[in-house]
């Protein structure tokens, strides 16, 4: 356990050193295999993450935990560090053109966790890919019928 912790910390420190500079200039490079030291991290959709990519690399765990408590216990929603939103925006397409689950080593969250030997239990409960069902059924729900009384 402690050995693992030490290792994780070392890796995190190491990445904090190495990754940012590269990421800011040419983010795509991360996907390429030009560095043996870096895992291939798939890029999220859109231009930006919910915060600066460098900040995310270092602090995503703290931000997630904080927002988690706010959302669950106080009902605060719509803030940036939502796990549901990370999963949605960082969905990675698998060979079947469907987003992969965390069972796949390509999954965004696994890309560096595997590398850094971090294990998280979040996806025992949380879906690791966006809902497959869309508007019609899953989300827009309320509205289908009218209350007749």
């Amino acid at each position: 356990m402690s050995l693992r912790r030490i290792f994780i910390v070392l890796v995190a420190v190491f990445m904090a050193w190495v990754v940012p500079g590269e990421a800011q200039t040419v983010p795509e490079k991360k996907i390429g295999n030009n560095s043996v030291l870096l895992p291939a991290i798939p890029r999220g959709q859109g231009d930006h993450c919910v915060a600066d990519a460098d900040f995310m690399r270092r602090n995503h765990m703290t931000m997630l935990m904080h927002q988690r408590d706010e959302t669950v216990r106080q009902g605060i929603r719509g803030k940036p560090f939502s796990l549901k939103e990370c999963v949605a925006c960082h969905a990675v397409e698998g060979p079947d053109a469907m987003p992969v689950t965390v069972a796949s080593p390509q999954h965004f969250c696994r890309a560096c966790h595997d590398y850094a030997a971090v294990s998280i239990d979040c996806f025992q409960c949380h879906a690791s890919r966006p809902d497959v069902v869309t508007d019609a059924g899953g989300q827009g729900g309320v509205v289908r019928g009218a209350a007749r009384e």
Binding site: G46, V50, G78, P80, E85, A88, C89, P130, D131, V133, T134, D135, G138, Q139, G140, V142, V143, A147, E149
Partner: peptide
């Protein structure tokens, strides 16, 4: 019944810009 009208549909999408 109050007969009020209400629109509450939120499309399922994950685009934060759209969410905002």
């Amino acid at each position: 019944m109050s007969g009020k009208m209400k629109h509450t549909g939120i499309a399922a999408e994950f685009n934060p810009a759209r969410r905002k």
